[in-house]
Simulated assay, not measured.
Amino acid sequence: MNTPLFCDADLAGRIELAEAQLIEATVRATHRRLGNGRGFVIPVAGGLATFADDDSPFNKVVGLGFGGVPTADELDELEQAYAAVGAPVQVELPHLADPEIGITLSRRGYELESFENVLGIAIADRYDVTLPDAIEIRPSGDEELEVWLNVMADAVAVPDTQGVPWREEFPHDTYIDAERDAAAADITRYIAVRNGEIAGGAGLRTTKGIAQFAGAATLPTHRRHGIQSALLSTRLADAATAGCDVGVITTQPASKSQQNAQRNGFNLLYARAVLVKARQ
């Protein structure tokens, strides 16, 4: 049995840096695609404030907590930037971050809206993957990008009802565009096949020893047949091959995704509080 991974502030900072780099790469891909000059990436206290496009899931402040407390001037700058594009300010703040940051944001009118969980696992040197009968997991190349995008969008459009629901929902086209831009951030894509039919998909990004399990989704008719666990175990094996020592996955609290991750050896490392300041 694997020993649960212990997460201290150093490991959390390492994970949050990888997350910020993923968001930045995705947002800059959106900027290149649109070319309208509205987007921004603003460094702030070791993290980033990013705006990709209207209603994008990548409009947020990430990576705060391990590079000092943002100053009033820094917060003024990013709040003005979001106000200029008509967007609220959404901060994803790890509970292992400097507690002074939460106090500072609360005093400026930020309100707690939700939580998300970051789970992790110490990756073994190698994995022997045995998939259930009738299930195949394979890489999905650029020639299959449109298929992968639509499978993911169709799957997330019918969310699993277990656990706390996602606070945000995005239109089909918005989700497609966001995932297309994320594909530019060195994410390896996977397709799950069950009984000869495409059943779901997932992503994996590896950077500096961190394996980011970048989303996974199963079409409703194929749920409860081991697809999620098969996608997880396959990506764990690939992360080990890539030399990663830590794997991370972000889930909603008490969700089916969290349950599947814990069945595969992940444990809860920390939670992120989602703090929002409404449009000015």
Results as ranks from 00 to 15, higher is better:
Q252I: 00
R180V: 07
K277Q: 13
T174H: 07
Q21K: 08
E197N: 07
A52D: 09
D245C: 03
D8Q: 12
P139T: 12
R32M: 07
D76I: 02
R32F: 06
V44H: 00
P165Q: 11
T188K: 00
M1P: 13
D76Y: 03
L64I: 03
G141Y: 05
A239W: 04
A214C: 12
T174D: 15
K60T: 05
V89N: 00
E168T: 13
L219K: 05
H95P: 00
F6H: 04
G201P: 03
G163L: 12
L22N: 06
Q280N: 10
G13D: 05
K277S: 05
A185S: 15
N117R: 02
T241F: 03
D55H: 05
G63V: 04
G203L: 13
A153M: 04
E77T: 11
E111I: 09
V91Q: 02
G65Y: 09
G243L: 03
A83H: 04
A217K: 05
V147N: 06
V41S: 14
H31R: 07
V164G: 04
G46K: 07
T206E: 05
L231P: 01
G63I: 11
I23F: 02
G13N: 12
R33Y: 02
A52I: 04
E19A: 11
L219C: 13
A185C: 04
A72P: 03
N195T: 10
I227L: 15
D177Q: 13
G215W: 04
S106V: 11
L64W: 03
S255W: 08
S140R: 06
G201H: 02
T207V: 10
L75Q: 02
E136L: 15
G37T: 09
V158L: 01
L131W: 12
V91A: 09
R14N: 02
C7L: 01
Q252V: 04
Q259S: 12
G215R: 10
L219V: 13
T30E: 13
I103H: 14
R167W: 04
L75N: 01
I249A: 13
A72E: 15
S140Q: 12
L78V: 01
L204F: 12
D73L: 11
V274M: 09
I191H: 07
Q90A: 13
M1G: 15
V27M: 10
H95E: 15
D98C: 12
L119W: 04
L204M: 02
E92Q: 10
T221Q: 15
P220L: 02
A273L: 14
A183H: 13
E24A: 15
A18D: 14
D53Y: 11
R108A: 05
T161W: 02
I15N: 01
T50N: 00
G201D: 05
A49D: 03
E74A: 15
N2Y: 11
A199I: 14
F58M: 10
Q262A: 01
I249P: 08
I210S: 06
A261D: 10
Q80S: 05
P43E: 11
P253G: 08
L34C: 03
